[in-house]
Amino acid sequence: MNSKNIFTLTGAFILYFLIQVLILKNLVVFGMGFCLLYVVFILLLPIELSAIPTMIIAFLMGFGLDIFYDSMGLHTASAVMLAFFRSPWLKVITPTGGYDPNTPPTLLNMGMGWFLVYSLPLILLHHLTFFFIDNMGTFLYLPMIYKILASTLFTFVIGVIVQVLFYKKRRGI
């Protein structure tokens, strides 16, 4: 973790944050598919970053988003949930031979198969928490499940597109 790395991460943090609140906030497909692209930012943090700093970054990201979404705690709770389970999950799915040092776990670095296994369950976990808290107190379980599935798919597809377009191999942004 050198200073250049920290600089790019801060830049990516601000960029993802602004894109989320200014553009993607109003982009909801059929009233079902939310695009929570900041999830991809948390997923693509360096592999060496342990759970504690990841959770703190996720907390800050979630809290900032909540202020803009006027949904105190909603993004915070789900982002921290994602960040906590990221490190154990990375350990579970370590490829044979281990991870290369200083490689962010992007699609281009790790391949589609690995990225699918890595990101889909974590995005699903995040969205599950998100919509569960959102629907707390109501009994709208069926719409909630539609929203979870549609949003997971949508976020994943947009995440893949963003990585193909804007990420280089073996490097951050």
């Binding site: 909540d66 705690g73 915070t76 808290i133 707390m136």
Partner: peptide, 8 residues
């Protein structure tokens, strides 16, 4: 998580 739920 406790902080987040308290906020909610």
């Amino acid at each position: 998580e406790a902080v987040a739920l308290w906020l909610v």
